[in-house]
Amino acid sequence: MSNTHFIIQVKNLTKQFGTFTAVDHITFEVERGEIFGFLGANGAGKTTAMRMLCGLSYPTSGSGTVAGFDVVKEGEKIKRHIGYMSQRFSLYDDLTVMENMELFGGIYGVKSRKLKERATALLQKLDFFEERDTMVSALPLGWKQKLAFAVATLHRPEIVFLDEPTGGVDPITRRQFWEMIYQAANEGTTIFVTTHYMDEAEYCNRISMMVDGKIKALDTPTNLKKSFNAASMDEVFRILARDAQRGD
């Protein structure tokens, strides 16, 4: 059975597409309540690894649990206990803010009255209640991203997967976005986030660095900088990615 201390435990997880090994025997754990940064260059295998953890893709070999459920056999159960927000904006443009929240809450089985309460509370906290009947297409991108995060956590998942959530967003909104992440983490939600902004990596409790499908380093930002004798995470990343065969 799974260790309650770890929300994700993965051993030798591998995904092959034909002869190409996208994810190559990765092994790691994520503690409950931590903000875990999942870093790597484009093509390093981050997205594929994350899709396996979310139950979107079956591993070729290896094993693991997410929220106490087996990634190979219990993908459907995992889906109930996680939240997900993708790099591409993922709310419906032609629905209003509230309609989006009702839809996704409903999909996750949140009861109508509870859903209304939570949605109202979330929107008020974001100072966004006035806009509840605005069509999502009319919102600026930064707001859409914040809203998408709110929607992803509406059903109070144990863990939220964020796939490059701040891509294309201005620094101020990114800052606000990270405040939301911290708040959710403080309330006990585990955050699993991929990003290629190295300054954001510093906000994480622990970081894994993926190169060519393998995890090359995993530690707190401070420890990583110390062991690679680097001044910034950017430098750590450059040292690690120097021998990368794939990606750009």
Binding site: G55, L56, K79, R80, Y84, S86, F89, S90, Y92
Partner: peptide
Amino acid sequence: TGTMDVLLVSPV
């Protein structure tokens, strides 16, 4: 639009 991913990771 990318909303399919969100639906696929949901329990629907």
